[in-house]
C-alpha cells in the first residue's frame, strides 16, 4: 500500500515536470504554429542555471526565478532573430532551423557546463525525506509537486481569466482581427515566446533536483514534451495537463512493473491512445463564429 502510494507520488512529480515543460511547447505550437525544438535546450539551460546559482551561495529560493528569467531572455532574443523570420514558413523549415539550433546549444552547454552529470547543491531544507505510511519520500519531490501545481494554476488564471490572456487567445483564433484593434501581435508573439522559453527553463530548475543535469537530457525532455503535446491535443490547456499525467503515470508504473520493457510499454500506450484519438485527448474546439 505504502509502496504504491510512493510510486503514485513519484508519478505525480514526474507528470508535473512534463506538464510544465509541455505547456511551454504547446503554447508556441498552438499560438504561433511554430515547432520549437529548442525547448529541450531551454529546459537543460534552466537546469544548469539552477546548479550554478545554488553553487554560488546566492539565496536558494531565487534559483527558479533566475532560471525562468535567463531562459525567457534567451527566448526573447531568439524571437527577434532568427525565429521571427520563420513564423510564416512551413513546419519542415522550422524543424530544420530549431533542430540545428538545439544541436548547437547542446554543444555550447557541454562546453560551458561540462560533460559530467551535475547535481545541484540543495539547501538542507529540501534534502530530507518525509515518511508516508512508513515509506520515505524525498521532500524535494513534494515541493516540486506543490510548486508545479501552483504554477499551473497561475498559468491557467493568466491565460484564461485575464485580459492579456484574452489577447493571446484571440491572437490564436484570428491574428489579423486583433491587429485591426490597434494591438501589435508581433509583440504578443515575442512575449509568448519568452514566457514559453522561460517555462522551459523553470521546469529545468525545478526538475534538476530530481533528474540532475547532463548532456543529452535536453533531447530526452524535448521528446517527452512532444509526446505530451501530441497526446493531449493542440492548443488546449487541459489536454496538455492530461497528456502529461498519462505519460508520467505510464512511464513510472511501466518502470515499476516491467522495467525491461518500460520504454516499449510507454510508447505502446501512446500509440494506442493516438489510434483511438488521432487529434489528441482534448481536440481543440472550432473557434470561428
Amino acid at each position: 500500500m505504502g509502496f504504491y502510494l510512493i510510486q503514485t507520488l513519484n508519478a505525480v512529480a514526474f507528470s508535473v515536470l512534463l506538464m510544465l515543460c509541455g505547456l511551454g511547447l504547446s503554447l508556441v505550437l498552438s499560438l504561433m504554429n511554430f515547432v520549437n525544438l529548442t525547448h529541450g535546450a531551454s529546459y537543460l539551460f534552466g537546469s544548469y542555471v539552477a546548479v550554478v546559482w545554488l553553487g554560488s551561495g546566492a539565496p536558494w529560493w531565487l534559483a527558479v526565478p533566475a532560471a525562468f528569467l535567463a531562459a525567457a531572455l534567451a527566448g526573447l532574443l531568439l524571437d527577434r532573430f532568427p525565429f521571427a523570420r520563420f513564423y510564416g514558413r512551413n513546419h519542415l523549415a522550422q524543424v530544420l532551423l530549431t533542430y540545428g539550433l538545439s544541436v548547437m546549444f547542446a554543444d555550447l552547454m557541454r562546453l560551458g557546463f561540462g560533460a559530467e552529470i551535475r547535481s545541484p547543491a540543495l539547501p538542507d531544507l529540501l534534502r530530507g525525506v518525509v515518511f508516508v505510511l512508513g515509506m520515505p519520500f524525498p521532500i524535494y519531490r513534494l515541493v516540486l509537486i506543490l510548486a508545479g501545481g501552483v504554477l499551473a494554476l497561475v498559468l491557467w488564471y493568466l491565460f484564461d481569466r485575464t485580459i492579456w490572456g484574452a489577447v493571446v487567445r484571440a491572437s490564436v483564433a484570428d491574428r489579423r482581427m486583433v491587429e485591426t484593434l490597434g494591438l501589435d501581435t508581433s509583440r504578443v508573439f515575442a512575449v509568448v515566446m519568452a514566457i514559453a522559453a522561460g517555462l522551459g527553463g523553470l521546469s529545468g530548475a525545478l526538475g534538476v533536483g530530481m533528474l540532475s543535469a547532463y548532456p543529452g537530457l535536453d533531447e530526452e525532455i524535448l521528446l517527452h514534451a512532444l509526446f505530451v503535446v501530441v497526446l493531449g491535443g493542440l492548443g488546449t490547456f487541459r489536454g496538455t495537463v492530461a497528456g502529461a499525467f498519462i505519460l508520467g503515470f505510464a512511464m513510472t508504473f511501466a518502470r515499476v512493473w516491467l522495467p525491461e520493457f518500460a520504454g516499449f510499454l510507454t510508447l505502446l500506450a501512446i500509440a494506442l491512445l493516438l489510434v483511438l484519438r488521432p487529434d489528441g485527448l482534448v481536440a481543440p474546439r472550432l473557434r470561428q463564429v
Binding site: 484574452a166 487567445r169 484571440a170 484570428d174 482581427m177 470561428q288
Partner: peptide, 9 residues
C-alpha cells in the same frame, strides 16, 4: 463581414 467576433471569448 459576419465573422470577426472572437467566438471563444
Amino acid at each position: 463581414q459576419g465573422r470577426g467576433a472572437f467566438a471563444a471569448l
